[in-house]
Nucleic acid binder design. Sequence first.
DNA 1: TTAGGGTTAG
Length: 653
Amino acid sequence: MWLAGMAVNSTSQLFKSLLVTSELIDGQNRGRLASSSLYDICTRIHRISLGTSFWPGEQLQHSSFSGSAKHEKHRNLSLVCVSNMREFDQTALVSAGKYLQNASTISEAISLVKKHLHQGSTIDSYMYVDVLQRCFKHKDLTSVKQVHDCILKSGMDQNPYVANKLMRVYIRCGKVQDARHVFDKLVKKNVFNWTTMIGGYAEHGRPADAIEVYNQMRQEGGRPNEVTYLSILKACACPVGLKWGKEIHAHISHGGFRSDVPVQTALVNMYAKSGSIKDARLVFDEMAERNVITWNVMIGGLAQHGFGQEAFSLFLQMQEEGFVPDSTTYLSILTATACSSAGALGWVKEVHRHAVKAGFDSDMRVCNALVHVYSKSGSVDDARLVFEGMLDRDVISWSAMIGGLAQNGCGHEAFSLFLKMQREGVIPNVTTYVSILTASASAGALEWVKQVHNHARKAGLGSDFRVCNALVHMYAKSGSIDDARLVFDQMSVRNVFTWNAMIGGLAQHGCGQEAFSLFLRMRREGVVPDAITYMSILNASASTGALGWVKEVHRQAVQAGLDSDVRVGNALVHMYCKTGSISDARLMFDGMVERDVITWTAMISGLAQNECGQEAFSLFLQMQREGFIPVATTYASILNVCTSTGLAMVEEI
DNA sequence: TTAGGGTTAG
């Protein structure tokens, strides 16, 4: 038996060799011993005596072994070592990684690990990291569990590398709780372990847990590094994360990371995603150095907040400053929200021109975004042009085009494309079905809705609640309230959207009583109504004409705190007018904090229909004084007043 | 060996 180049035949020799080994391990001599042997020895010593983290530099200090052999701790150490050394052979000293080189599959690698374990040979951290990396690649949870079992059996669960890789794999497989379990069991945690756990929570949208770990790290004296900050900032990049994000910002400033470009970029991103675009811009403007990612984050943040024009200016500015936009820059600027703003089409075309010039017109993701954005900004022709020019298309391309057509009143064409995509071998997913089923109502839609429903059933998506929600909505919209009800009744999981779609559908079909009873059932089943529910149920009152119902729903909306929602308010004004209580309508109208053109039109037409022509006309003037632009319905209402009463205001209008 | 800032359909 050889250890650190010495023959080991007795307890005393073993102990001597351990002393030499520890010297070799220590400091600059570390390199003299083959690393595989070193780790093998360390693993054994660790298993025997230390029970905590075993990084040689930390645990196997020279001094740990330099005391008298008579010392009980060392004596025990030696004795246990001896018993384990019986199983110790030269082959185990060969780097474990080499064993796995021949394993082509995960199961082969695991079999080798198990064989090793069974023979009592040492499995070093490299071997575990190697096999765990294979599990990571394939997101193979069953294999991870088997490897974890081996790790526990060989006592390697305290190895920081092994534990860290194990945590990462669990996180990748969606088992954050299992990662947390490994993490909690770690007696000594290094910055990698802390960061991995924080990053895991960030990846799974759990900011509160990430913050808890981050705070624990600081309390226990851990020092976050730049990667820790990147991870915790990612976790806080959501609306609830803002308050914590601000605290971390202060830690970063005090911790000397003010000029770290990735950390500062992550700060910009955190502020943008948590809703404080002003703070994002502040950090961005103060940065002395930036890179393409920094620009992309700021541009994307502005675009998502609806500041399309500003995003576009920044896009030009970055190029003036010598930065070359990449595909992400184009994706960031072409985000949906930005393009819903008025006048977006102009600069979308401008971005498109830039993308063509820069050669990104063949990038599938950029083209997908363009199809989406053109559809959103109302130019389905441009969307079609981009789509047709694409050499490669994935399910996103097809879904974006289908959704764009559906929303722009081309339901039939959307359906044809839906059939074509399948002919070309692309399998529709939930989004494709939802996209096509959110089409605007059109004549003859029912037939193809039924066919889409059939396809969904065949694809095994017939009971997916997102698809069913869209089906309820679309059946109701295309005229078959019975089919909508059939889908609704067969659903095992329903959310507020499901109830809203059904209640809204019934309301539109003049089934007020049925809508009301469904509204009551929804509440009995513990589903909390939202603004849309109240809006729908108020519309249902139109068919019942019952003022009592409107007042009751109004009372409940107040209780739920939703009466201040402009959509609910509009429906209340409208319904009070419809049921003949113009005084209640006016009371509601006057008390509204926020009004839009619909509010004004509802009140004006209510007054007009209830023979209050003069009042309607003065409200019509007031509306314009307050900066609201009347729409066709507003004019129709007010012109009705003029014709019926003979008021000489027509010219003024 | 172990952690890592931005990214398209609904």
